[in-house]
Computed example of a mutant assay.
Amino acid sequence: MGGMARYDALLVVSFGGPEKPEDVMPFLENVVRGRGVPRERLLEVEAHYQGVGGVSPINQQCRDLITALRPEVDLPIYWGNRNWHPFLADTLQKMAADGVTRAAAFITAAYSSYSSCRQYLDDIAQARAKVPGAPEIVRLRHYFDHPGFIAAMIDHTREALDRLPEEDRDHARLVFTAHSIPVSMAASSGPSGGAYEAQLRAAASLVAGDRPWDLVWQSRSGPPQVPWLEPDVCDHLATLHAAGTEAVVLVPIGFVSDHMEVVYDLDTEAAGVARDLGMRLTRAATAGTHPRFVSMVRELLEEPEPLPCAATCCPAPRPRGAS
Rank of each mutant, 00 (worst) to 15 (best):
Gly99Ser: 00
Pro223Val: 12
Gly278Met: 03
Ile77Asn: 04
Thr282Cys: 07
Pro76Asp: 09
Gln50Glu: 15
Lys20Val: 10
Ala129Glu: 09
Thr282Ala: 09
Ala202Asn: 03
Val207Trp: 00
Ala125Asp: 11
Val131Met: 05
Leu281Ala: 03
Val294Trp: 05
Tyr120Asn: 01
Thr282Asn: 05
Ala5His: 10
Asp168Pro: 04
Cys314Ala: 10
Tyr196His: 08
Glu136Val: 08
Gln50Ile: 15
Pro304Arg: 05
Ala208Cys: 06
Gln119Ile: 12
His236Lys: 10
Arg298Tyr: 11
Ala316His: 09
Trp84Leu: 04
Leu11Cys: 07
Asp276Glu: 15
Leu28Ala: 14
Asp74Pro: 08
Pro191Leu: 10
Ala187Arg: 15
Arg169His: 00
His142Ser: 09
Gln218Ile: 03
Arg320Asp: 13
Ser14Ala: 15
Gly36Lys: 02
Gly99Val: 00
Thr177Met: 00
Gln126Ile: 13
Leu88Asn: 01
Pro212Tyr: 07
Gly244Thr: 06
Arg320Ile: 14
Cys314Tyr: 04
Pro165Cys: 08
Ala125Ser: 06
Leu11Ala: 02
Arg6Gly: 01
Leu88Val: 08
Leu174Phe: 00
Gly254Leu: 07
Leu121Lys: 12
Ala9Arg: 03
Leu206Tyr: 10
Met279His: 06
Gly244Pro: 00
Met95Lys: 01
Cys234Val: 04
Asn81Arg: 00
Glu197Ile: 08
Ala89Asn: 07
Pro212Ala: 09
Asp232Lys: 00
Leu121Gln: 10
Leu301Tyr: 09
Gly53Pro: 12
Arg128Trp: 09
Ala5Phe: 12
Asp98Tyr: 04
Leu250Gln: 02
Gln199Gly: 00
Thr286Gly: 15
Gln225Asn: 13
Asn81Gln: 06
Arg163Tyr: 10
Arg158Gly: 06
Pro227Thr: 05
Pro191Tyr: 08
His142Glu: 09
Leu301Gly: 10
Met4Lys: 05
Asp267Phe: 13
Pro165Ser: 10
Leu88Cys: 08
Tyr264Ile: 07
His259Lys: 13
Glu305Lys: 05
Asp8Trp: 03
Pro304His: 01
Ala208Asp: 01
Glu230Ala: 13
Val31Glu: 10
